[in-house]
Amino acid sequence: MSQPESAIADAQAGGPSNGTPATPQEPLAKLAERYGLRRAIARPRLPVYLRQLWERRHFVMTYATSRNVSKYSNSALGQLWQVLTPLLNAAIYWLMFGVILGARGKMEPNVYIAFLVTGVFVFTYTQRSVTSGAKSISGNLSLIRALHFPRAALPLAYTIQEFQQVLISMGVLLLLVLVTGQPITWMWLLIPVALLLQTMFNIGASMVLARIGSTSRDLNQLLPFITRTWLYASGVFFSIQDRVGEQQWIADLMYFNPAASYIELMRDLLIQFHPTRPLVWFTCVFWAVFALIGGFWYFWRAEEKYGRG
C-alpha cells in the first residue's frame, strides 16, 4: 500500500523492454540488455522462491535458536521461563475456572487438570506463533532493508522458535499428565504427528498475519483481543460439548475451529476415556494443509513489498 504502484508494475513486468525509454545519447537499457544485466527488484516465481527458502534453512534454524537464547538472557531463571510461563497460566486457569467457577463439569479433579493443562499448552503454542508471526516483518525492517533473502524466512523462523519452545513444554506436559494418573498408551506415539499438523497450521497462520502486520501497524494492538476471544471459544478450560447442550450444530461449528481441533486431538491422545470427536483427524489435517498452502501463497504474493515505504 505504501509504495508507488507503477514501481510494482515495472518490477513485475521485468525486462528492459518495459523500462523508461532511454535517451538518444545514452541507451542505458540497451547497454544493460547487451551485457545481460537484470533489474534489481522482482518477485521470484513460486518454485524459485521455495528453492531460495530451502537454501536459507540454516539461517532460519540459527535465527530461531539465537532468538530463543537471547530472549531469556537477561532473566535469572533463563530458559526455565519457557516452561514456567504456561505452567503459571495453567495454575491461574485451574484456580479461576476449575475451583472458583466450577467449569470442570462432570470431570474428575485430576482428569480436569490433565484436560486443562493440555488445552493451555496446545493453545499457547498456536497463540504465540501467531502473535510473534504478526511482528516478524514489521519488527525486522532494518534486516529486510539490509539483506536479501526470501522474506518468508522470518515468519518461518519465528514459528520454529516457538516450536523449539513447545518441545520443552511438551515434556513438562507429559510429565504432568502422568502425575495426574493417566497411563502411557500406544496413542502417545501419535503425539509427534499431532504436533507436526499443528506446526503446519501455525506456520501458515503466522505468514498470513505477518503480511497483514507488515502494512497494518495497529495489528499488534488488536491482536491480544483476538487471541483472548479465540482462547475462550476454543474450549481450553471447559468442554464445549458439555456447555452447548442440545444445539449440536453449535458444538460442531466450535469444534471446527483449528485451535479447538488441535486441543481435542492432543486430549484424545493423552487422556484415557476422553470422548473422541468424529472427524477430529480430518479437521486437523484440513487446517494444516489449507493454512500452510494458503498462508504461504498469500505471503509470497506481497514478497517485493515488505520493508518498503
Partner: peptide
C-alpha cells in the same frame, strides 16, 4: 541493492548487489 523500488527509471545489475549491513541480523545479547 534492490531494496527500494524505483518510482521511475531502473537499476540493472549483474549479480546481486549487497549492502554491507549484516549488523541488522546480529543480536547484542549473543
Amino acid at each position: 541493492a534492490g531494496l527500494l523500488p524505483p518510482h521511475s527509471g531502473a537499476v540493472y545489475t549483474d549479480g546481486q548487489p549487497s549492502l554491507l549491513g549484516v549488523n541488522a541480523a546480529l543480536m547484542r545479547e549473543l
